[in-house]
Amino acid sequence: MEQRTIAEIGVCSLIIIICALILWQAAKLPPGSFEPLGSAPVPQATAGIVIGCCLIVMVKAIIKIRRHHSLAHHVRDELIGRSPWNAIYILGGTLAYVALLQLGKLSFGVLTFAFLLLLIMTLNRFRRHSLLPATITAALFGFGIEFLFTRVFVVDLPV
């Protein structure tokens, strides 16, 4: 069976941090003036239960690691295997794309065209025969969406 213990521990720690942040914020809220509950208790109770559940999952995971295999075994099992590069390209490319949109120096159509072209080519490892379909796809969707939104629907796109 596929092991997920490392992921479980990591993700649960992340969730606990989120909950702690919310608890910290909720502590600052004033008590309710319209009804007995007020703004704070519902989020506080929810965050508390989530932390509890996360601890359960983490303890179970740690027990599993202790009982069956060494930590190294788990690391090998979970983290090594599939190549993560494509996911990194997509995520990194998207982050750069959105950041450039936010800066607002280039028009939506041009940016989207460049983003699609570069990303599709990267995912196809810059193979020659994918250049034409990639350019067509990028132009069609990049400039097509820009035209549709700004001309037909007359709304703003992130410029």
């Binding site: 969730i15 919310i22 914020q25 909720a26 809220l29 003036s33 509950l37 929810t46 989530v50």
Partner: peptide
Amino acid sequence: LLGMLISMPGVDPASGMPRLT
């Protein structure tokens, strides 16, 4: 519960004041 928690920041539905922002 995490989904519930994530929905809570913003204007409190029952008092009109912002919370957890």
